[in-house]
């Protein structure tokens, strides 16, 4: 990891990684809202939800997604990819939590157990795959 002692706190890898995770979660929630809002538009393509692009929340979600990605790339410059990849796995908990909190989705015990397995599995697979990207 690079020496980050003289960096501003908001440029630190941990803050940027947290920011990336939070922005990604927010982006997914907003895109879900936009995608659902497009149900109002009848006659739109049934499979590829192009109608969602007519809603501003979808575009805000896309912008947050892009900013999250830029933040992630910045983190990769400062932190070993193994460590960064394990830490970003927190999105597998953050996104369902945000869906429960903001979209009022109910999360059953079996779904929670599945999410925990995915989180554990992602941590195990970890770095070997992401290092090649």
């Amino acid at each position: 990891m690079r020496d980050t002692r003289h960096q501003a706190w908001y440029l630190g890898p941990c803050f940027q990684l947290g920011l990336s995770a939070v922005l990604l979660s927010a982006a997914e929630v907003l895109m879900k809202k936009g995608a659902t809002a497009s149900l109002i538009l009848t006659g739109m393509t049934p499979l590829f939800n192009v109608g969602a692009l007519t809603w501003s929340v979808t575009w805000i979600g896309i912008v947050l997604y892009v900013v999250s990605f830029i933040s992630w790339l910045y983190v990769l410059r400062l932190m070993p990819v193994t460590q960064a990849y394990c830490l970003i796995s927190v999105v597998h908990v953050l996104v369902p939590a945000a869906a429960w909190l903001f979209l009022l989705e109910s999360i059953s015990l079996s779904r929670a157990a599945g999410i925990a397995l995915v989180l554990g599995g992602t941590l195990l697979v970890g770095a070997p795959t992401t290092q090649r990207l």
């Binding site: 997914e28 929630v29 895109m31 879900k32 936009g34 995608a35 659902t36 497009s38 149900l39 393509t45 049934p46 499979l47 590829f48 939800n49 192009v50 969602a52 979808t58 999105v91 597998h92 996104v95 369902p96 945000a98 869906a99 429960w100 979209l103 989705e105 999360i107 779904r111 599945g114 999410i115 995915v118 989180l119 599995g121 992602t122 697979v125 970890g126 070997p128 795959t129 992401t130 090649r132 990207l133």
Partner: peptide, 28 residues
């Protein structure tokens, strides 16, 4: 992206998002 938006329209986010976990195993 557009397929994901289509799925988001019909299914709960907390049900769909765990599928994102398939990316690292697929790459491996």
């Amino acid at each position: 992206f557009f397929t994901w938006l289509g799925l988001l329209r019909d299914w709960e986010l907390s049900r769909l998002f765990p599928f994102e976990g398939l990316s690292p195993p697929l790459l491996a």
